[in-house]
């Protein structure tokens, strides 16, 4: 990393963990916590989608994994009395397992075919949540307790959320922390040989196979990591809203995850994060347009994609280099 990158990273971390909380407490705009927490969690899901784009697959199914992750956490917390902190990685791992089983056959598909199947996956997941007994159908799972205490060897790492004065701040810090870790992992993947191999898949799978790359394995690996991100995001969302329904994540959410990536830029690790922030706030700002909100939103999106096809970040990157 160059000094410039380090400075940027430092500024980013200070903004997220110090300036934002201070700014909110000074201005008294507590509602911003919910907005920014959502942005952080959505950007984790988007980071996963971005990784599937990175191996050359259009993924419109991240909503499915957010829903699955959410249910895994909710069911374990409510029915088996498992600590939320344990359900968090379990939700991710469960999603990875599901995605490996589904991915083995469907990742052979390319382009629009893969995209269609992932889109259908979101709907199938919603219908399954409606039908399965364990998910409690349309009534969903409600009154989920807040995350309890996380302690290791008697040492309290995170106090019980129910006893906190300001659980909103705690959720924000949790989401921001997970987001930073997720993007650090993604950055490392992209800048290691793993990323190099992913790019080779994206550009030419046949050639990659001819130089000995296990194409099927690498595709499933990337998709598995992607779905882990989706599951984690879903699990935290459910902990915040303390409830989950089959309609908690739907096709629109899957499409949005993809749009976040497009808007931010597929060539940049931080693209999905910026895309999520812009789109989430952009959508809310457009509420002034009332019944024309969707129309204006769609027009702006189309204009943006035509004007900056490589994402907003490409505007700052005249050389076209990869970060």
């Amino acid at each position: 990393m160059t000094t410039k990158n380090l400075l940027g990273l430092g500024t980013f971390l200070i903004t997220v963990f110090v300036l934002v909380p201070v700014g909110i407490s000074v201005s008294g705009r507590w509602d911003f916590y919910y907005t920014l927490t959502s942005v952080a969690l959505l950007s984790i899901g988007a980071a996963g989608v971005w990784l599937t784009f990175y191996i050359g697959r259009i993924n419109i199914g991240q909503g499915a994994y957010a829903l699955i992750g959410g249910y895994v956490s909710a069911v374990l917390v409510v029915k088996a009395d498992v600590s939320f902190w344990l359900t968090l990685p379990l939700a991710g791992l469960f999603c990875t397992t599901v995605s490996v089983l589904i991915g083995l056959p469907i990742l052979r598909l390319r382009g629009v075919y893969f995209a269609m199947v992932t889109l259908v996956l979101t709907e199938v997941t919603r219908l399954s949540a409606l039908a399965l007994p364990v998910t409690n159908g349309a009534k969903g799972i409600t009154s989920i307790p807040l995350p309890g205490e996380l302690s290791i060897l008697g040492l309290t790492i995170i106090p019980d959320f129910a006893t906190m004065q300001n659980p909103k701040l705690a959720f924000y810090l949790l989401a921001a922390f997970l987001m930073v870790v997720s993007y650090a992992v993604l950055w490392r993947i992209v800048n290691s040989r793993l990323g190099h191999l992913c790019r080779s898949l994206q550009q030419n799978e046949e050639l990659a196979a001819s130089i000995g790359v296990n194409v099927a394995y690498l595709r499933v690996l990337a998709y598995g990591i992607s779905s882990f991100y989706g599951g984690i995001a879903g699990a935290v969302f459910v902990a915040i809203s303390q409830s989950i329904y089959p309609s908690s994540f739907v096709v629109t959410d899957s499409v949005n995850f993809m749009l976040y990536c497009f808007l931010g830029g597929l060539g940049y690790v931080s693209g999905p994060m910026l895309g999520t922030l812009l789109l989430y706030f952009g959508w809310n700002l457009l509420s002034v347009a009332k019944e024309y909100q969707l129309l204006v939103y769609a027009s702006v999106m189309i204009a943006l994609m035509l004007a900056v096809p490589n994402g907003v970040l490409s505007l700052f990157d005249r050389k076209g280099d990869r970060k």
Binding site: R199, S200, Q203, N204, E206, L207, S210, I211, G212
Partner: peptide, 14 residues
Amino acid sequence: VVRTFQETTIFRSM
């Protein structure tokens, strides 16, 4: 046993 391709096959954006 490694093949090259008749169609020009390279990683274009590298």
